[in-house]
Simulated assay, not measured.
Amino acid sequence: MLYLENTTEFNSISMKKITVIGGGNMGFTYAESIFNSNLETQIHVLEKSIERIQEISALNTISIGSDFSVLKEADVIFLAVKPQISPTVFEEINHFLNKDQLVVSIMAGTTIETIQKGLGLEKVVRAMPNLPAQVKLGMTTYVGSEEVSTEELELVASILETTGKAVLVKTEDDIDKSTGVSGSGPGFVFYMMNAMVNAAENLGFSPEQSKILVSQTFGGAVKLYQDNDISLTEWMNRVSSKGGTTIAGLNHLADTNVGPEIQKCIEVAVARAFELGGKKL
């Protein structure tokens, strides 16, 4: 089976063979991002769906197939399958694995211990990406088992950062907490954007105009916050003037308790993440 390679040296990390199990949206996002990065890698995708194999093969870039024996040569195994089918996947692949391999999982709610027991491997990193990874603006948190070395964590960081930013957290609980903030966060942002688009359309702007007004407003505000060491409270002060339009709107948000309710929204999402992992917050 042919592997297509990127061969540019990256931070002195030697050539690594990476196999992504799962050719769905997130699995392919990582495979494509790794392939197009400066990482010195051989990337292969394992996928069962014939239609998906044909779809990705037609791109004539990333190697894809359904032969699990390629796992024998992998340095890094990237698990990008639905959590509910993980026991079946573990059973299918564990006899192709060896103790030196590093596993990176983006399966929501599936603990490091569960993966270790299911695969019989010790070196496991659990990661939580979000949807903007598809446009290389993702936010991923990750944590490794005790057996994962500092060098291996650096390798994982370089892989995850092909899709945006990556932050190493201290515990798996922090992974579940970040799920409510950055993992589910895009959904909450889309909710607020949708409300603003609807308001714009109600004011008479066309759908196309409303999309531009709202998306550029969000993008510009985020850029200002990212590029300056200024608190969000100060930014709100800077955009407001006494008796003006912005302060009128902000006062309404405060009066209707929107801020605390957004915080509650995140707390509910975090609690659900813990519940899916069989834990309580």
Rank of each mutant, 00 (worst) to 15 (best):
I112A: 13
E51D: 13
A58H: 14
E40L: 15
A271D: 05
N194T: 11
T8K: 15
A200G: 11
P87T: 05
T110M: 07
L59A: 13
V189Y: 07
L232K: 04
V239I: 11
A248R: 08
N36A: 11
I77M: 04
T163Q: 04
A166I: 00
G183D: 04
F28Y: 15
Q42I: 01
G220W: 08
L39G: 12
V167Q: 04
L102S: 07
N228I: 00
K279A: 08
V270G: 06
E234N: 07
N6Y: 05
S241D: 12
E234R: 10
L232M: 08
A271I: 03
Q216I: 01
L2M: 11
T179L: 05
V70Y: 03
N257C: 00
E151R: 14
K177R: 10
A195Y: 03
T179A: 09
G65P: 09
I13L: 15
E51C: 06
E32H: 15
I112N: 08
G243L: 14
T110V: 12
V156W: 00
N36I: 02
Y191W: 13
M236R: 10
Y191P: 04
A31N: 12
V258Q: 08
I77V: 15
E73S: 14
Y225S: 12
I247Y: 08
S241W: 11
F274A: 07
V20Q: 06
Q134M: 05
R126K: 12
P129R: 05
S178N: 15
T171V: 07
T256P: 12
I106V: 10
T256V: 14
G249T: 02
C265L: 13
G164F: 10
Y191I: 02
K264I: 02
K211T: 15
A108D: 08
D255N: 06
E151I: 14
M193D: 01
L160P: 00
I34V: 09
T162N: 05
T217Y: 07
L250P: 01
L276D: 00
N257F: 04
A157G: 03
K117E: 09
T233I: 12
K117N: 12
F188C: 09
Y191C: 03
T88A: 07
I262R: 10
K117V: 07
G144R: 03
K17F: 09
P129W: 04
I85D: 04
L160N: 00
D174R: 01
V20W: 02
A157Q: 13
L121W: 09
S86N: 13
S69I: 12
S14A: 14
F205C: 13
A80P: 01
E91H: 13
G185E: 09
V268Q: 09
A269D: 04
I93E: 09
F190M: 11
I262P: 01
E40M: 14
Y225W: 12
G27H: 05
V270N: 03
K117H: 11
L2S: 06
T245G: 11
P87M: 06
F218N: 03
S49K: 15
F35Y: 12
D67C: 02
W235Y: 13
